[in-house]
Design a protein around this nucleic acid. Sequence first.
DNA 1: ATCGCTATGCAACAAGTTGTACTATAGAGG
DNA 2: CCTCTATAGTACAACTTGTTGCATAGCGAT
Lengths: 194, 194
Amino acid sequence: MKQFEDPRLAATRKAAIEAALVILKSEGVLAVTYASVSKATGISRSTLYRHWPEINDLRNDTFKRAARPENKSPEPRTNGPLKADLMWLLRFLLTALNDTPWGKIAPQIVAAAAQDDQARAVINLFMQERITSVKAVFEAAADRGELRDTVDIDQLADLAVSVLYFRKLFAGQPIDETWLAEHVDTLCELAVAQ
Amino acid sequence: MKQFEDPRLAATRKAAIEAALVILKSEGVLAVTYASVSKATGISRSTLYRHWPEINDLRNDTFKRAARPENKSPEPRTNGPLKADLMWLLRFLLTALNDTPWGKIAPQIVAAAAQDDQARAVINLFMQERITSVKAVFEAAADRGELRDTVDIDQLADLAVSVLYFRKLFAGQPIDETWLAEHVDTLCELAVAQ
DNA sequence: ATCGCTATGCAACAAGTTGTACTATAGAGG
DNA sequence: CCTCTATAGTACAACTTGTTGCATAGCGAT
């Protein structure tokens, strides 16, 4: 009877993914190969194949590792007023995109998602998590009676997050403090009771 | 003195890119290789290398070919009222993503953009073009006096387009008629004078 | 400590791709 | 007809994905 998993399995997994993450950050998805990870870790190529039969399996595990927990949304502030809470949370998302490795990693996952269902699932889950955290901010504002009663909170949360990523990854427009302030103003104008 | 370009050059270029576009649509960027295009066209691999020294050169030219003109935004309707004009244009963008090859091609360009500056330029230009067409709709509404005077038209156009692509490519949420109607309602609520 | 199981390491191999180099042929224009 | 050049064809090196076979080293159990 095997009660416990061979500790070598976990050690190999961790070392490989950790090294793959470094390569992912510095050189992109395509540089995450069996050979490069093998060289970086000393783990033999055949062992890597046994753990991850296809290269996308390894890459997707690296994506999952990258998507948590440092890069996840923090517990949002929900003390109010809405504008302050929104500014705080969206500034975190903006900083993550502009000034942390996540700004390099996210596009890599998006790229992989175009070809791979698993990668698509990773990026979808991550984005849902971002939207949910923003939604919590709006819901708290609604509980405090700050919002108009006609507003659709799901729509608002979608709007708040999507423009950030769209400008960064699709439109090539800057997302800086100046823009963020205007963006939050627009959202509040839409949401807050006059 | 050479006055005219050898017609074989243009013929080769066109045939190769046309074939590459078909492969791009059906099998993705990674399937666009010198070998696959050579096989599809009968053009020898060495000739392809002479036209496109790196494979990304060929892929980027294929992207440019894909980004025009059938997939570009049509002349937007600007007769008013705003809600009808917006609905018409955004429905076009939605249909392009859901029911035409562009829905498969766009993610491929986004994927390439994560690794390649030229591809990034292509997708950026294309998205700017989409935003501009939406902006024209808002500007016409503003000229008719339909809008509140506080609204920022650039922000509105960004919002209108970004959620579409975000939901489709990042969040994995459906973009259907039901959602579109709500989205347009939200935009109009933000923009239209009460 | 010994034994069996298994994870790992190592080497070789086939296939596909990128990119280079060289030669021969075919077509365009004067 | 002649020259220039685009194309075809081939060979080659390097890298990557996967597969396979075999030897070794470490883990858990008796």
